[in-house]
Structures are given as structure tokens and as C-alpha cells.
Design a protein around this nucleic acid. Structure first.
Lengths: 122, 122
DNA sequence: AGTTTGCGCAAGTAGATCCTTGCATATATA
DNA sequence: TATATATGCAAGGATCTACTTGCGCAAACT
């Protein structure tokens, strides 16, 4: 198992999603972020490092402070993946199934014998 | 750390995403799915159990076979979360920042002294 | 100069995750 | 009935993950 540090992995953790929600449109420094959570500053710091490593956060140093700015372009990857299955929650799945069934029916008519449909009686 | 079995967690694993891609519009039985991967049948079986537990897959028994059907309604949760940050990849972030800056400028004019902007010189 | 504040580094830990192997069981097929 | 097929259950191992605590250090107040 090699180390995975992709966006899907990054947003799997609810704390990291909360961090993103917090700073999405409002750059904050590390302690300001940590204040919102019931865990140590270091824990938050580590989460932010992960977000940084996969490109969802940019850290800008200013004196002794580290300002964390969201850079959520990569969430497009995830958005695009889920978007492919949009039909599942728009209530149009019925129509799609109907269409797919007609497709395979047509295929069966033209090429009987090589049924693509795995079906059993009982 | 309690056990998390939510959709974000479920799709964090690339194998599980591949499984979803495979059966999204095409119900398959367990072995047929496992054939597509370079790991044991049990490994795939366990991934599918996880997908089932969080409601992304429904298993229909038919004789000795288990047909796995995708039920991706819950991906809406993820789609909705990413959708909130769409502005980041549509190239409209500049306009948004401009707008937000004007907002805080206005705030500063009406209520000087209680600056919302944390700023330092140098 | 002394103290506080913001943060990093490092080590340690409990438990989760991903995968394996071995064996059992029901259902088909010859 | 004997064999092959589709699958489940259970235990074990190597990592990985999400924390913690303790210490150090530079920047910023007093």
C-alpha cells in the first residue's frame, strides 16, 4: 500500500471538511482555526498540513503567524466524479433504466444467442 | 475515535470508486466484479460490504449468486458539499474576492475601530 | 530583558483500514 | 452422487490514521 494523498482521501475526514468550510472564503491563522475544535492545536496543524500537501490550502507566513487560505480548485475532481451519477438523485433513474432496457432488447433482436443479459429463472 | 461509515469515507478508497464505476449502470455479481481487480475476491467482497453498509449498493440474492446494484442517491451529499465551492474552479474567484473586499471596506467605513480585518504592517 | 504568543518537530499510542489465507456452506452442473 | 462454482466467516498482519504530550524557538508584547 503506497501513500495516498489525494483529494478524496483528504476530504474523507470530517474535521478537515470543517476546516475547509471555515476558511473557504475567509483566511485564518492556525490558532484561530484550532479554536473552533475540541482537540489540540497540533492535531489541527497536522490536518492542515495534509490539506496543504494535497493542494487544498496555501499557507502564507506573516511574522510568527501562518495564514491558511483555501484553494479549492481540486474539489472539481470530486464534483466531476459525483456529477456523473447525478441521475440517481434527480429522479430520472426510472427513465434511464427504461432506455437501457430498450437498448439491450434491440441488441438481443439483432444478435440472438449472445445475450448480454445474465438472467436465470427462479 | 468512533467508527465512521459515511459516504465521504466510503468513496475515499480508489478501489471502491472503481467498483461503483463498474456497476453504476450495470448490475454485476460479486465474482464478475472481482475479476476486474488484482486482489482477492474477499478483498472485493469486503469493499462491497462497506458500500452496502453505507447504502451505496444493494445486494440481491439469486440462487448462489449475489448481484450488486448501485444505489448512488447518497452521492448527492458529496455533490452538494463540493458544489458550494464551485466558484473556485469556474474562474470567478477574482470577482468574488473583489466583492468580499468591498463588503469589508463598507463595514470599516460605518464602524471604524472594530475592524474585522486582521492586518499587520510588515 | 522577561514573558507571552504562535507555531513546528518528534515520539508514542490506540484503533482503523486494507488485504491475505484457510476453511465452511449452499447451490448449480455433469 | 460427485464435482465445480459462488460466496461467507474468521483470524492475522502490515500499515496508516488521528490523535496526544513534551519540548523548543522565534516573533511580539510589557
Amino acid at each position: 500500500m503506497e501513500i495516498r494523498r489525494d483529494v478524496f482521501q483528504a476530504i474523507a475526514d470530517p474535521t478537515r471538511r470543517e476546516i475547509i468550510d471555515l476558511i473557504a472564503f475567509d483566511t485564518k491563522n492556525l490558532n484561530a482555526i484550532a479554536d473552533n475544535f475540541d482537540m489540540s492545536r497540533q492535531a489541527i496543524s497536522q490536518h492542515i498540513r495534509i490539506l496543504e500537501e494535497c493542494g487544498l490550502v496555501v499557507i502564507k507566513k506573516d511574522g510568527r503567524e501562518r495564514f491558511c487560505q483555501a484553494k479549492l480548485e481540486k474539489l472539481y475532481e470530486i464534483n466531476e466524479w459525483t456529477e456523473r451519477y447525478r441521475v440517481f438523485w434527480t429522479g430520472k433513474m426510472g427513465a434511464l433504466r427504461k432506455f437501457l432496457d430498450q437498448e439491450s432488447d434491440a441488441l438481443n433482436r439483432t444478435a440472438k444467442g449472445s445475450s448480454r443479459i445474465k438472467r436465470k429463472n427462479k
